[in-house]
Structures are given as C-alpha cells and as structure tokens.
Nucleic acid binder design. Sequence first.
DNA 1: TCATGCTGGTAAAACGTTTTTCTGAAGCAA
DNA 2: TTGCTTCAGAAAAACGTTTTACCAGCATGA
Lengths: 348, 348
Amino acid sequence: MQKLVRRSAARVTIVDVAKAAGVSPATVSNAITGKKKVDEATRSRIEDAIGELGYIPNAAARGMRTGRSNAIAIYSSMPTGVAAGASKLGFLMEVAASAAVTAMETNTSLVLVPPISDPSQAVRSIAIDGALLLEPLENDPVLDATLSRGIPTVTIGAPIGRECHHVDLDYALMAELLITHLIDGGARSFPLLIGKSRRKSNIEFVKAYARHADALGMTPRILEIDEAQAEENALAAVANEIGTGPVPDAILVPIDAMATGAMGALRQAGLRVPEDVRVATRYDGVRARSEDPQLTALDLQLEEVAKVATQALSRLIEGEAVEPRIAAPKPTLIARASSRAQPGQCEP
Amino acid sequence: MQKLVRRSAARVTIVDVAKAAGVSPATVSNAITGKKKVDEATRSRIEDAIGELGYIPNAAARGMRTGRSNAIAIYSSMPTGVAAGASKLGFLMEVAASAAVTAMETNTSLVLVPPISDPSQAVRSIAIDGALLLEPLENDPVLDATLSRGIPTVTIGAPIGRECHHVDLDYALMAELLITHLIDGGARSFPLLIGKSRRKSNIEFVKAYARHADALGMTPRILEIDEAQAEENALAAVANEIGTGPVPDAILVPIDAMATGAMGALRQAGLRVPEDVRVATRYDGVRARSEDPQLTALDLQLEEVAKVATQALSRLIEGEAVEPRIAAPKPTLIARASSRAQPGQCEP
DNA sequence: TCATGCTGGTAAAACGTTTTTCTGAAGCAA
DNA sequence: TTGCTTCAGAAAAACGTTTTACCAGCATGA
C-alpha cells in the first residue's frame, strides 16, 4: 500500500515575483492590494509574473503586518447538551452557515468554535478580527475574553448587564406568540420548562409567562432546568410534574432539547400529544420536526439574523460607527400538530 | 443613542514581557512554547509577567514564523442547492460540527468555507494547515487548489481519477442497503433519481442500481438531475416520469433535496406514500425527517466519519505517514414510514 | 592541566508582507 | 534658470514571533 507524501513546495514569495517582473517588492504589493497607483505596463508585467510563478500571498505574513486576519469566529456559550444534541445540528450551526456565507461576501472566513472546553482559552491564539457570540450569559466568559482583548464583538441576543453590540432577538414577542397560541387553543394550565442559566432568552420567557399566568388566573409552574443535560433533565422534570400534580393541558418548552425530553416523558406516561397535552417549542430545528407529532415552533429567521449580525460585525471591524442595538427580523409562528386545539378544551 | 467605541488596546508583546521578567524575548518564547528548557525560577517570573501584563501571543506573527496557522478548512463542492437548502443545514454542517470538535482536541480551529463563488479563490489567502473536502468531483477545483499548494487534504468520499487521502465512504453498501430494502418490501419497478455530477457517490449508486435491475429483470430507469436546482429539477423529473410511463412502485432518491422534490411531485399527482409509491433516501437530515411521512434513510455515522477524517488530517499535517484510504464506519438502515411494505405488493 | 559536555541563557537573523520615507525624473510656471 | 509639484517606483523599516548560532559558567573525566 503506497503512502502519499507531502510535497514540500518551495514557497514563492513576493520578492520572487518582484525579481521576475523587474520591480521592487513594494511595487508588487501595491499592484496586488491596489493601495497605490502603479503604471499599467508594470502592473501587467507583475500580473504575468504572478501567474507564471503561481504566487500566492502568505496570509500569516500579511496578517502580521496589517493586523488583520480576515476571519471572524462564532462562539456559543450554550452547553453542548443543547447546542449539539442528537445530530450536532441546531441553532449554532444554522447561524454559522448563514454567517459564513455573509462573511464570504467581504472576503472574510468564519471560524467555527465548538462549545466546549475553556472558552477564554479558545479565544486566545486564534487570529480573528471579530467575534459573533450566541445568546450570551450574564458575565459570559467568552464575552469577557473578546471584549477585554478589544476584539469587536456582536452578540446574537442581548447581553445582560453590560454594553455590547447585539442583534436584539425579540424574546418577548417569541414568548407572546407561543403563549397566546396555546391559550387561544384552550390551554389553561400549562407549566413552563426553561433553562436555568442567566440568559436574556430564559429571563424574558419567564417574565412573559408570569404575566400571562397572572392575567389568566393560572398558578404559574416554572420548571428551571440545567441546560447541560437538557433532554434527560427535562424528561425527569416533566415525569415528576405529571406524577405529582394534576396533568397539565399543555407544556411550553422553548428549548428544543428539553422539548424532546418532555415528549419522552409524556409518551412514557401514556399521554397523547396533542389530545391530552399540547406542546410548543421555540427553535424549529431537526428535533422539532422529527418528533411525532411534529412540534409547533417559531420561524426565527435565523438566516437573516445571522446576516445582519455578520454585516454589523463587518462594519464594526472596519471601524465604522454601529448602533449598539441591531433590530432582528420578527419571528412568526409555525403551528404544527403538537399544539392542535382540542374540541371541548376551548371554554375557559 | 450612544455608540460603543473600539478600544485601541496598545498591544503588549513578547519583548514587554521579556523586559518585565528581566530576560530575553527568546527565553520568554521558550518558556511559552516549551521547546527549550528554562530554569524553574525564571519560568515562574515569566509567567508572573505574562499574567501581570495580560500578554497574549500574536497568532499571525507566530504563524508567519512557524508556517503553521493551527486551522483547517472544510469545503464542499456541492452546489448550494444541495449543501444549503431549506435551512442551510445538512451534510456539510453536520460534518463541520463534528470536525470542529475533533480539531479542537489538537488545539486546531475549523474554518467553514461556504459552497459558493470561486473555490480556488476561497483557498487562497486563508491561512490553513490542511483541508477537508466533502464528496469531491472529478477534476475538483478545490482539490486542485489545495493539492497544488501543497496543503494536506483529506476528502470525505473517495476522489475520482487521482490520489488523495480520503475517508472511503462505502457508497456501494449504502446503495445495497436501500435497494434491497425496497426490493424486500416488494418494489419491482422503481427509478433511480441521482445527481448528474461526476462524484463517486453518484457513480456507485448508478452501478449498484443497474446491477440489481439486471438481476431483477427490471428495466432500469436512471434519472440524472442537475444538483444546482436539485429540488425543483427532481420534482419536474418525477412529475414527468409519472405522467409518461406506468406509475413506479417506489423511488430511490439518494440526495435528500431531490427526495423533497420527488415527494412534492407525488403529492401533486395524488399518489400516496408509501401506499402507492415507496420512497427512500440516503442522508438522514432535516429534510428526511420533516417529510410527511418521514423518509427512510441511512445512518451514515457522519460524526464518526468527520472525526476520523479530522484525525487523519491532523496526522498528515504533523508529517506522519497516513494510509491513503481510511475506512469509514458502516452505514445502517433507518426504516421509516415512507417505505413501509404494502400488503399485496410482495409477490414478484 | 586540558578537552568535553551540559546548562541556562542571549543576540541576532529570519519569516513575508505592508507601509513609510525617500528619490529621480518629468512637467510647468515664473 | 529656479522653484515647485506630481508621479512611479525603490529602499528600508516595521510588524512580533521563533529559531539559529553562540557564549559563559560550571562540572566531569582523563
């Protein structure tokens, strides 16, 4: 079995090109970057030489001189239990895909930083011009790291207790859409399963839920779950909820990994969805769609969200003035079988 | 509305640290990288100084000197119609997620290169030590670019007509699993919808299909579709197929975007799945799971595939000898409603 | 005593660009 | 002629590391 061997490609540098074209390296640089005018004749000689020799600028050297890397990173401080999950897809990857496409428009590449290990470590020693950060925590360590290093940062979802450019996801509206949908369908007694970490999304959902519960005269049941083992913990919490009190007529469970767990608990208890209990979640990912029945969720327009975030980051990197708050597109409801209204449940 | 302003963080360099610790920059470098022994006392002085000053090595400068960037890129030459699609997820992102996690284990970050625009351009001017490439084409331009630059490359799925390290996805087995599943369920007349690009996956599926058709005495119907508009083209092709000939009892459509199109065509024709026509696809992504009924597909174990690919690339970058062919984990069938056997279809 | 080797360290070169500063030539007006 | 400006380009500095070559001191062994 033959081994392939690595070619040790005696690198061709800008001085090789300069020699071949009979000019100085500075002129070659100017011809390439277009920062200074070079004569048409010399430019074409240079371009010929470049083609001839197959010259490719050394990105590291360029980056060292200019202080730019033409790369941005995307981070999530969500534990892998949520961010990854069954097929490692989800929120982070969906945003990343769109961000990568948008970044490429300004000749920037996107570095994917998986949500593991020491985040401040992950920020060090990666050459990036800026960072996108998903759903920051209060005192988010990644945000600490990027901001203290002076790296332009845009968070997706507002940060808590500090200033940072962010795309302001309208969590209040998300909660409103889901809660009124459940109520409109007849739900009168439904708990909220939510992450216990201090994130804007969790906080806003709790707030909206509490408000509606109050207006409805419903005893609020807020089950706060550790996101690290989202699915298992949610399953246990729902099983416990069902076992101890009256069976709820619906469950609001924004985080999709927890929704999977909740569905599991309902199945185990022999409860039918949506006939006995109706379920709604927030993120319309692979989990929501592959449940049986499929879960009602929101179209968060993540593609657009990622796009505006990336564009804002781009401008920030260029040193342009950017409003700290960037509006996000409005989410819309995707009603699916899991929350279909049940006849006879509709009166208050 | 207040504007946030970028801090111009007067960078602290290795010579600042050296001065503070009363040693030379070389010694600081040695202390950090551990490449040469430095006395315990001096090392701790250096570490104190680093902490004090908040020194962070400049990745670009380091990269320029060492020729390493500690980053790998992942490319796909699939057109966006397939690689991206409805929610921009899929094959590429699933592999990317796992690759990112694996890469991080060797302190390497992963650069996500979206499948757009000029691929050879995308390879230039990104500082990477190696590349992963999904399902290469014959004469793949990305592969041309990386190999000609001497960038260590591992493809996922074998390349065609040239040598390159690759994880050898067992397309023949994939085809076998799906085809025998359909046949075992009673299918006797089913076309193959496949991409027309020259990729190992397409070629192997055609080969296996032809072989089975021959053994079965079935007239082979191979519909080759342009992957660029996969969903629309597949819909049209299936609509045409149904309209012109006898209605098939199944459809084999490996590429998930095409499966979505096929399902659409069947719906429009008023044909039921699986009662009238049974459907099976290959990649078990969001498309397969969100169809109604959900599509039979394969568990390709992409997480593991990405892991072994990334590890092999890692070794390649380190200059270790790596076998050109890396075995992939075996795919398994995930039978779902879309291909459920129909009573009365089982006799030949 | 001398050669030898080890240890912990330094000075300086090197990496490949971009940027700053400088220069010579040409053009033009007074 | 002189002085001033513009232009295309060159020389050299600079970016922040790592690496190479070297050195002084000290121990070791013959």
